[in-house]
Design a binder for these strands. Structure first.
Lengths: 206, 206
DNA sequence: TTTTTATATTGAACAGTGTTCATTTCTGCG
DNA sequence: CGCAGAAATGAACACTGTTCAATATAAAAA
């Protein structure tokens, strides 16, 4: 088969991305295969390279899409959650990872080859997630805080990420760890309290 | 070639493990290959399956060895570090990951197939690392702390892990993050202070 | 309308992978 | 010395990512 007109370039990109994302959700990073994506889309291997340039670029796009879903998830958690917006965020972070463990893990399992970097577009899209958290953190810190809020928010995220990563990996499951989310939230609250944040439910657990 | 007597079963296991560990350090998880390990050891593919049963078992053993090196590294950091043993631990955690990024990453990139778990032996060996931290944390908490120290220590580790993981992944590099180690240590100190720990240099950074 | 040009799509080719297992070769025991 | 059993092999199978000459088709030109 040669040139076709079933889809515009735009549509084809979206089709491959959608099928790729679905495959990742089903099988996970280790079993992911470009050929399988092409097959599901009704095209052949080469098309992926025509459209994305490399398999890595497709993978990056798939993971960026996961970031976008994740950001939506957090926004919803904030909207539906109660007064304690920090708790909503931490819970949202965990819930998403647990709801889509394969998609979530893929983000951290995919490493670009040495020297290659994410496109500006991917970076910008992914930064939204951090932005949401940063905004909430800024909102409850004293107006005159000496903290670099962006940096501080990233640090809090990193802390929560660590807990979450242990849960999804299974490292915690074997240790009778009952409440990793609770631990993560405790650490966040301790830190926020230390920096004079005011929160609807500020008191850290014991 | 058939049966040989160049190595005992024990020696052969060690040989494959050593070559496998070296390969992982050189090429990282993505480019790791069982065939390559066998070639370097002067044996053929099948031998890996004879000795370890599966490639996953070899990978688990390789990563367990990394854990052991990491624990040694922390012990040395504690011995050579100053009074502030918590700082030594956090620094040690980061330094190891940065000194051996491919080995360190491999720990978290290797996922056992669904339903399979690490052997008791692997688990026990890996637990040493946590044990070292737990001991230090227990030492500076008030004797009458209501905390479950094991659980709490794991939580602190998770927090540091999150920061470190962002560094090694490169997520932080793109954000002009100058001092992730410092951030991690600040969060740990804030929490420890909150729980009444006494530390040679207790005051968290601002 | 026909011809030409440009481009999208293909799929065979290549070098690698994990995994299995019949076959072979050697060791140690009787 | 002969032989049972264990260890090492490597071909076979089905897959992978990546490249690229060939081809079929759409769009533009004549």
């Amino acid at each position: 088969m040669g040139r076709r007109s079933d889809h515009t370039a735009e549509e084809l990109r979206e089709l491959l991305l959608a099928k790729g994302h679905a495959l990742m959700a089903e099988t996970g990073f280790a079993a992911f295969s470009g050929r399988q994506v092409a097959r599901r889309a009704g095209y052949s291997v080469g098309t992926i390279y025509n459209v994305f340039g490399s398999l890595d670029a497709l993978l990056a796009a798939i993971n960026t899409r996961t970031f976008e879903l994740w950001a939506d998830w957090l926004r919803r958690a904030l909207a539906d959650g109660g007064e304690d917006r920090i708790a909503s965020l931490v819970r949202g972070y965990f819930d998403f990872a647990l709801a889509h463990p394969l998609l979530w893990s893929a983000i951290y399992e995919h490493r670009l080859p040495d020297g290659q970097h994410l496109s500006e577009d991917d970076l910008a899209r992914r930064a939204e997630l951090t932005g949401i958290v940063q905004q909430e953190v800024a909102a409850i810190l004293p107006a005159d805080t000496p903290l670099d809020v962006a940096r501080y928010a990233r640090s809090l995220i990193a802390g929560v990420h660590g807990h979450c990563s242990y849960v999804v990996t299974g490292s915690f499951a074997l240790l009778d760890e009952t409440d990793p989310l609770g631990s993560a939230l405790d650490r966040v609250r301790e830190s926020l309290a230390h920096h004079g944040a005011y929160n609807g439910a500020n008191a850290p657990g014991t």
